[in-house]
């Protein structure tokens, strides 16, 4: 195999995948193919051709973003943290390091590899370094809800660009019209960053209604979350009748009241 051909074979498929994805997506959106229950018009010809490849690529890119958040570590549950971060178990490995040194002669490859790995990890506070990977993950797989959610979080919380987060979620909702999670995330951003209770209520109401849809995920936590936020908003505007109504729905459908939901889900 000659050199240019080798390079072309290596480079071309991913380039083609990304460059044609939007083109095919736009042209075939009208076809209305639907292969996944939570997806809508985003299902396109490329999905059919590429199958799960886009999902795999999307997940890989998402993992890359996660690794960036942990300062490049892919196995971030296994190292000590240098900079304070959020909610990780961090094991200190001084003893293990000693044992690794003692085994250097028995297994030099493992010892040298251990030298190459870092002994500690940090949490990245610069969101802009994560965003290219989140963006690529969302572009590669528009139905990757985890990527959309994580990207929206990074945009709103870390980069302080809630407007961009909202736009991303709205596109995600268009591509995944039966998805509850994205509506919930949108509602949360509207409350937290814009104090826009009116639009947030619309989002949570949409989330609740979608949670009842047969194509939606059957995860009760999402429904409970939607109910809690609906109750919270009605309470915020002192609409006690509506609050009672949501309270009753929560008891009937989930055998829980809104306060228990809040405690259960650790919502603020």
């Amino acid at each position: 195999m000659n050199f240019p051909l080798t390079i072309t074979l290596l480079i071309l498929p991913p380039c083609l995948l990304f460059s044609t994805s939007n083109l095919i997506e736009n042209s075939s959106a009208r076809c209305g193919y639907s292969v996944h229950p939570q997806q809508g018009q985003g299902d396109n010809l490329l999905d059919i051709i590429a199958g799960d490849t886009r999902t795999i690529i999307g997940n890989a890119l998402l993992e890359k973003a996660e690794a960036y958040y942990h300062g490049g570590l892919t196995d971030h549950g296994d190292c000590s943290l240098v900079t304070a971060g959020e909610g990780h178990d961090h094991n200190h490995h001084e003893d293990e390091r000693d044992s690794v040194q003692s085994s250097a002669w028995r297994d030099p490859w493992s010892y040298l590899n251990a030298q190459l790995q870092t002994k500690a990890h940090v949490h990245l506070d610069k969101a802009e370094e994560l965003l290219p990977w989140y963006w690529a993950a969302c572009e590669a797989s528009p139905h990757n809800i985890q990527a959309l959610e994580a990207a929206a979080y990074a945009l709103a919380q870390m980069a302080e660009k809630p407007q961009a987060a909202l736009q991303l979620l709205e596109k995600g909702i268009r591509d995944n019209p039966y998805n509850v999670t994205l509506e919930l995330s949108r509602g949360e951003i509207l409350i937290k960053h814009f104090k826009d209770f009116k639009n947030a209520e619309t989002a949570f109401l949409a989330a609740y209604q979608k949670s009842l849809h047969e194509k939606a995920s059957k995860d009760d936590i999402l429904k409970a979350k939607a109910l809690f936020y609906l109750g919270y908003i009605t309470k915020h505007r002192n609409d006690l009748n509506a609050l009672q109504q949501w309270q009753q729905i929560a008891r009937e459908t989930m055998s829980l009241d809104l306060l228990s939901i809040r405690n259960l889900l650790e919502l603020n």
């Binding site: 290219p132 945009l155 660009k161 961009a164």
Partner: peptide, 13 residues
């Protein structure tokens, strides 16, 4: 030249 989500400053990628 790419600015993912309209945000500049990324270099590590």
């Amino acid at each position: 030249f790419a600015t993912p989500f309209g945000i500049k400053g990324a270099s590590r990628y």
